[in-house]
Design a protein around this nucleic acid. Sequence first.
DNA 1: ATATCTGCAAAGGATTTGCACGAGT
DNA 2: ACTCGTGCAAATCCTTTGCAGATAT
Lengths: 138, 138
Amino acid sequence: MPNSRLRLTPQRRIILEELRNTRCHPTADEVYDLVRKRLPHVSLGTIYRNLDFLHTQGLILKLDKVGTQMRFDAFVDPHLHISCLKCGKVADLPQNAATVTLRTEGLTDSEAGFEVTGHWLELYGVCADCGNKVVVDK
Amino acid sequence: MPNSRLRLTPQRRIILEELRNTRCHPTADEVYDLVRKRLPHVSLGTIYRNLDFLHTQGLILKLDKVGTQMRFDAFVDPHLHISCLKCGKVADLPQNAATVTLRTEGLTDSEAGFEVTGHWLELYGVCADCGNKVVVDK
DNA sequence: ATATCTGCAAAGGATTTGCACGAGT
DNA sequence: ACTCGTGCAAATCCTTTGCAGATAT
């Protein structure tokens, strides 16, 4: 039978520490850059594998609906994310910044016949930096 | 000076017709398959370029928050989408199936300093087909 | 010993792009 | 002529995977 004990390797510990040290919702390659400062020989494959592992363990969030790359978040308490339409930056907003009300009673009878099990709300806007930025390009 | 007249080429017309003939929110390669039945020599690059063109013209929606591939929708009236967690299928739901209430007054003062300009709500669940399906694999 | 984990490099999938030719005005 | 659009193929970007060696118990 397989030994299902899972290890907290230095790589995993440091990835988690770095994620917990920032609220920047870094992409995998940004995590890679952070971790490489402490583990110069770490590989990007290990970063991806362990981000996925930590996500499976429920230790981090995987944000796959924000821009073109996945982003990761070690703060797993319920909260909302807002992404900047100009620079792609992702920030946290309090959970009560928006409320979603579902009318589920009608839904299972709709033509789709779907059972609704959850939802994902994504806010977008313009961050402080980009809002203040003077537009230079034509 | 550039001639800014834009052409409704056979490729564009047929892509739009095929999209308007389905409510299946096809991916680019599914559109490719549909169009190829009528234009056997069309290329996938042309499909991508014209889907982007039609989106820029406001003629179709580009759904980039649904699964790993973009999906396209010629029905541009406001409505919601729900995607099946098991098979990835996307279906329409009436706009009033869910309401989002934003508390914007507090937001610009939050630590993020974001100005909220919009939001995207994604519902997910289990479609009728997958809900009825007997699980065979171990 | 044995299962898990890593680094490396290669493969994979989706999308975009460069280029020469074709089409419309 | 002069754009704009197309087909083809290659390139790009992000992510996943195969494999041989390393690590922990």
